[in-house]
């Protein structure tokens, strides 16, 4: 059986909020290492990969592999019943029909309990190769969100060019064009504001801004985001979560025929 207790319901609320625009139904794969999720969007252009390691929970107990097939709209409805600061416990039997969620207030004696009916989801799993990326950029997640939002006002697509000069996000649209260039930067007062660019060879790729702006819904989960790029392969956008856990998004590029 599964029993997983999170100190703050807020973490799961934010994770689900940030993927619900991309994915409708998905399996939460539980085993002794934690709770993992991998799902593609309907058009098979973007992929979400989440890992909540067992260390992020206290306690965490799961003695065998359990797949919880959950409709994210249903999960969102139930998670709205939790206060952000509530303690959240997920429970399921070994071959479950439902997942049980318990919300406890640390301050009062309130205890809420909900069951969500599970679905049989035949999910296509993709093998993601270990990649040595040619460029990786770590920057404030709010900055990446702002750039994405600003350029989306002008265009559907963004070109991301990374050279030793810096990283340039640029777009061309009907009303004109725009670009934002970032250079490596160390902020002495606040390292959350740092921009670090790690480059082994120049990269230039084009991506859909609609998907990138969807990924940026995860900005509330982490003050930092890491973009990893290599020519002609999918972009990796990664938000670090507590206890070495992560929320990753992959986006296939636009490539000339």
């Amino acid at each position: 059986m599964l029993e997983a207790r999170l100190e703050q319901a807020n973490l799961l609320k934010k994770v689900v909020d940030s993927i619900t625009n991309l994915v409708q139904d998905c399996n939460f794969d539980c085993n002794d290492s934690g709770i993992a999720l991998q799902a593609m969007d309907n058009s098979h252009v973007a992929l979400v990969a989440m890992m909540l390691r067992s260390d992020a929970f206290s306690p965490f107990r799961c003695d065998r592999n359990i797949a919880l097939g959950i409709n994210l709209t249903s999960l969102t409805k139930v998670l709205r019943c939790a206060q952000n600061e509530d303690i959240l416990t997920l429970k399921a039997e070994d071959a479950p029909d439902v997942v049980n969620l318990v919300f406890e207030s640390a301050e009062s004696d309130r205890l809420s309990e909900y069951d969500i009916k599970l679905m049989d989801i035949d999910q296509e799993h993709l093998g993601i190769p270990d990649t040595e990326y040619a460029a990786s950029i770590t920057m404030p997640s709010a900055e990446f969100q702002r750039i994405t939002r600003d350029l989306l006002a002008l265009s559907e697509s963004v070109s991301i060019e990374c050279t030793k000069e810096g990283v340039k996000f640029s777009c061309q649209g009907d009303i004109g064009s725009g670009s934002v260039t970032l250079r490596s930067h160390t902020n002495v007062d606040n390292e959350d504001r740092n921009v670090s660019i790690d480059l082994s060879e120049p990269v230039s790729l084009m991506f859909s801004l609609k998907y990138l702006s969807n990924f940026c819904k995860a900005s509330g989960l982490s003050s930092r985001v890491k973009l990893s790029l290599s020519n002609e392969v999918p972009l990796l956008v990664e938000y670090a979560l507590p206890s070495n856990s992560f929320l990753r998004f992959y986006l296939a590029p636009k490539i000339g025929d």
Partner: peptide, 14 residues
């Protein structure tokens, strides 16, 4: 003209 690729082209079966 650049065309949106699908992930299956890059990521195979596990």
């Amino acid at each position: 003209v650049k065309t949106q690729q699908m992930l299956g082209k890059f990521f195979g079966a596990p």
